[in-house]
Design a protein around this nucleic acid. Structure first.
Lengths: 223, 223
DNA sequence: GAAGGGCGTCAAGGCTCCGTTAAGAACCGT
DNA sequence: ACGGTTCTTAACGGAGCCTTGACGCCCTTC
């Protein structure tokens, strides 16, 4: 089944669109803020994202920019602004389509079908980084063109870092995302699994170039 | 260099667009009728087609329909008609985008860039892989040039994997797609049917080269 | 210089998950 | 109705993953 992530802060629009999409056999996920949207793409990897530009926290364009750092999921942008500049910016940042409000539901659905149809033939979103190549959607990873296999927990931890390239991710947040809220204090896990990842991914695990420790705070992934 | 086929019968528009595109480094081909357009795609295989719907001989939608019989080139449709039905029809016949006249040249260029960016690969109806040949449309499969028969469930499972070559497909997703949403938890089925498939398709079922297990996550098909 | 916190490393045990098999149930065409 | 095929279900053994605790090192702090 095709899954759609619907990102909008207008609850009314969210509900009517959800109903329409579900009635047509799509699985619908929703988010009402930018951070929320990024987290859901990270966790649920939907097939298409419909993204309203007017969000309460981060701007929609910023969401798109961050997303494009590690994902090629098709994004259809919704906006109340008709200006040419807004369209150009969104499309150039990586939107696949741009629909201005108010829009006909039929048109949106047709553009959605077009996006889904195309998405089958697009190749994987890979994060390239010198000796590392990471295919997040396909869950594959190569080091020096040799494939490396990771366990589920190792993947969870790596993905939490790679989807925020270069940024510091706190220990508490990592533990929450990978092991669950009840494990906030188990920093042991982080040490063990960071060691596992480094042994598999770094050419010199004692001197990591990608998986960096920030003492007392957390870790970050450098490309 | 990226080549664009511009299809329009208004010579004025053709000229201004051509100039704009050439100034931005595109190679521009032109056609002023539907037959002409089809011929040029056949001969020159452009990277993107910009297609006006109002053509003198064949309707633009008909051009698109014929094109989609043998080509997956991205097509951006231009039209003076704002009606929702027209957009829906064009998009469903296979257009990648739909722009209504009058349009800002900047917007068209941005949509063009988006189309070029997306255009990556093609999807094949048959998958070849050393000792395996799979005809997805015809539901037939050969191993070492000998045809193998699969049961309906075996086909469903194999197809769910083969249509995403190399990518990990989660257990939950496989169960949903093949058996239905109510069977999300029945991982037994996966084990039994993966064993069946391996016995039929792998030369050494105990050491699979195509149907790979990712413990705790799911399975993937390697070509 | 000593103490302590934070981090990396390692190894062992428990336990989940996977592959395999087989037998009965359901389904199909004849 | 019958024979054959396909699907469901359950049980078992083994491989590999997660958890856990102990230990040593480095850096900071007192």
């Amino acid at each position: 089944m095709t899954s759609i992530l619907l990102v909008d802060d207008e609850v009314a629009l969210l509900r009517t669109l959800s109903m329409n999409l579900r009635a047509r056999g799509y699985e619908v996920l929703t988010a009402e803020s930018g951070e929320d949207a990024l987290a859901r793409v990270r966790r649920d990897s939907p097939d298409v994202v419909i993204l309203d530009l007017g969000l309460p926290d981060i701007s929609g364009v910023e969401v798109l920019r961050q997303l494009r750092g590690w994902s090629t999921v098709p994004v259809i942008v919704l906006s109340a602004r008709h200006g040419s500049d807004d369209k150009v910016e969104a499309l150039d940042v990586g939107a696949d389509d741009y629909v201005t409000k108010p829009f006909g539901i039929d048109e949106l659905l047709a553009r959605l079908r077009a996006a889904v149809r195309r998405s089958g033939s697009v190749d994987a979103a890979t994060v390239e980084s010198g000796d590392l190549r990471i295919d997040l959607a396909g869950r594959r990873i190569w080091r020096d063109s040799e494939e490396v296999r990771l366990t589920p927990t190792e993947w969870g931890l790596l993905a939490a870092l790679v989807t925020r390239p270069g940024r510091l991710v706190g220990q508490r947040q990592l533990l929450q995302e990978v092991w669950g809220p009840a494990y906030e204090r188990e920093t042991n896990y982080l040490r063990v699994y960071m060691a596992n990842l480094r042994r598999k991914l770094e050419s010199d695990p004692s001197r990591p170039r990608h998986l960096i420790t920030e003492p007392g705070m957390g870790y970050r992934f450098l490309t």
